[in-house]
């Protein structure tokens, strides 16, 4: 049985070890599913996750959406939040942890309030994405509590290269000089670089 998660599940010819489908981490003792009354899950979070589970034929399909809900509530996927979601979903916390750790947008460590993902992939790189990332890092000036600045792979907006996703909204093409403005706007709670928002752009072919 491959230790790489899920290898057996996907291949009907291999025996399925239920521990794998439940995400047991090899070498760790069998983990129990926590009971709801043990975890102190806020009622809104519980309700949200239950609604999400109801949307799928199999409750486990709600694992990514549930982790998003945890992240929204606590700012990142905290161990307590993961235990709460696990209790609601009737899966082990380790299962949800293993899912969370697979995805770049789910944070299993604390991150700053505002998330700035700067694309450094091909088209942005050609147009100065690396320098944009440096400029954002300089503008955030080590204020890790408020800002999480990171380089990112292609965000699917190479038409506005070099670009960044700021709190899940896209902006570009950005100049290094605009990064300070954006950081100040975020601090002040103002709208960020409205004229650079992707949502405001027309179709390229409309001239």
């Amino acid at each position: 049985m491959s230790p790489v998660d899920g290898a057996g599940i996907s291949n009907p010819n291999l025996p399925v070890d239920p521990a794998v489908s439940e995400g047991r981490i090899p070498g760790r003792a069998e983990e129990e599913i926590p009971e709801l009354h043990e975890v102190g899950c806020p009622p809104e979070l519980q309700e949200r996750i239950e609604t999400l589970m109801g949307r799928y034929p199999d409750r486990r399909s709600a694992s990514i959406p549930a982790l998003w809900a945890v992240q929204e509530r606590y700012g990142w996927c905290t161990p307590e939040g993961i235990r709460q979601a696990a209790a609601v979903m009737r899966v082990t916390p380790a299962y949800l942890e293993s899912v969370a750790s697979f995805y770049d947008l789910l944070h299993t460590q604390p991150v700053g309030t505002h998330r700035i993902e700067v694309c450094t992939n091909i088209s942005c790189w050609m147009r100065g994405g690396d320098r944009l990332l440096d400029a954002f890092e300089a503008a955030a000036d080590g204020d890790d509590e408020n800002f999480y600045v990171t380089g990112f792979e292609c965000l699917g907006a190479c038409d506005i290269a070099p670009m960044a996703s700021i709190d899940q909204r896209y902006y570009g093409p950005l100049e290094a000089a605009e990064t300070g403005v954006a950081i100040e706007q975020l601090r002040a709670g103002d709208e960020v670089l409205p004229e650079k928002a992707l949502a405001r752009r027309g179709l390229a072919g409309d001239g």
């Binding site: 790489v4 998660d5 899920g6 290898a7 599940i9 996907s10 291949n11 489908s21 995400g23 199999d58 486990r60 399909s61 709600a62 694992s63 990514i64 293993s98 899912v99 697979f102 995805y103």
Partner: peptide
């Protein structure tokens, strides 16, 4: 496509055979 299916089933997105 098969990794997408695993992800949709709530797992880590690994491709299937």
């Amino acid at each position: 496509e098969t990794a997408l299916l695993d992800a949709l089933e709530g797992k880590r997105g690994n491709p299937r055979l």
